[in-house]
């Protein structure tokens, strides 16, 4: 961990609208994790939503409106060199920025297309940034109990991020990581899918919940608040005690003695 202010990486936190409104604690945990590993974190307050809900539902024009706003908020920071990276505690929203923005602007707006590509190159998912960029191998977190890891689809299959979160979890003290059957199967969230095809979505979620219960895990860890909210809704409704948590929350959990 370095504390040399001239070389400290500067990161703009992109919390995502779901973290912002549903799980602000995840944003705080992400900020603290980054700061603890020598990062200067700023939070561009004008950020809203990346536009993925509209994009995935087919509303490209509406998605563009939001994507433009995202670019307008973050681009100047990158352009003027005041940040080195944009980091988000979400695989899905990062995938949106990195992989879908270029498609979204491709045929319609050259300027935004170019800026979106530049932005995509410096946008990272939290655990990816911690491991690949900062070289963190252990966040010093503790949890005594059984945990399962659920790789969220966009994190795993769009961003191809898998070893990073697993590694950080494996380094946690006292935690027992249990095998989760069908771990890489979708939990059923899928954005608007969860509403438009609510019955299928919940059927998929129940299958995941069933596997979770069978795994004996007390907590299931993941990198997206969206899937987490969906799964917690199912787990709660089905009366299971297992709960989904965001990985930032867990990795930021430290014992009292070495806290602070």
């Amino acid at each position: 961990m370095t504390d040399n202010s001239t070389t400290r990486p500067r990161v703009a936190l992109f919390v995502t609208c779901m973290v912002d409104t549903l799980q602000p604690g995840v944003g705080t945990a992400a900020a603290e994790l980054l700061e603890r590993h020598g990062v200067d974190v700023i939070f561009p307050e004008k950020q809203t939503c990346c536009g993925q809900p509209a994009y995935n539902a087919g509303y490209r024009k509406d998605a563009q409106v939001m994507a433009r706003h995202f670019v307008d908020v973050f681009w100047p920071l990158v352009d003027e060199g005041s940040i080195d990276a944009i980091v988000a505690p979400s695989g899905s929203c990062v995938a949106m920025v990195k992989l879908q923005y270029p498609i979204l602007f491709e045929a319609t707006d050259e300027g935004y297309h170019w800026r979106a590509i530049q932005l995509g190159e410096v946008t990272y998912e939290l655990t990816q940034y911690l491991v690949d960029f900062l070289g963190v191998l252990d966040t010093g977190a503790e949890f005594s109990g059984k945990i399962a890891y659920h790789p969220c689809c966009h994190l795993l299959r769009e961003l191809r991020i898998d070893t990073q979160p697993r590694r950080l979890l494996a380094a946690m003290r006292d935690a027992e990581i249990v095998d989760l059957q069908g771990a890489d199967e979708c939990c059923g969230f899928g954005g608007l899918f969860a509403l438009k095809n609510a019955e299928i979505s919940t059927a998929m979620g129940r299958r995941k919940a069933h596997n979770l219960v069978a795994s004996g895990a007390e907590l299931v860890v993941m990198n997206d608040v969206s899937c987490m909210t969906h799964l917690n809704g199912i787990l709660e409704h089905e009366g299971h005690s297992c709960r989904a948590v965001h990985i930032a929350d867990l990795l930021n959990r430290r014992s009292e003695s070495d806290g602070g």
Binding site: V15, V19, D20, T21, L22, Q23, P24, G27, T28, A31, F43, E45, A194, L195, A198, E199, T202, G205, R206, T229, H230, N232, G233, I234, L235, E236, H237
Partner: peptide, 22 residues
């Protein structure tokens, strides 16, 4: 309301992250 049928409801935070940050 569609969400709610087979799922517990997400709870919006009393104070959003942006407010906490400020």
């Amino acid at each position: 309301s569609t969400w709610k049928r087979d799922r517990g409801l997400p709870r919006f935070a009393a104070r959003r992250f942006g407010a906490l940050w400020r």
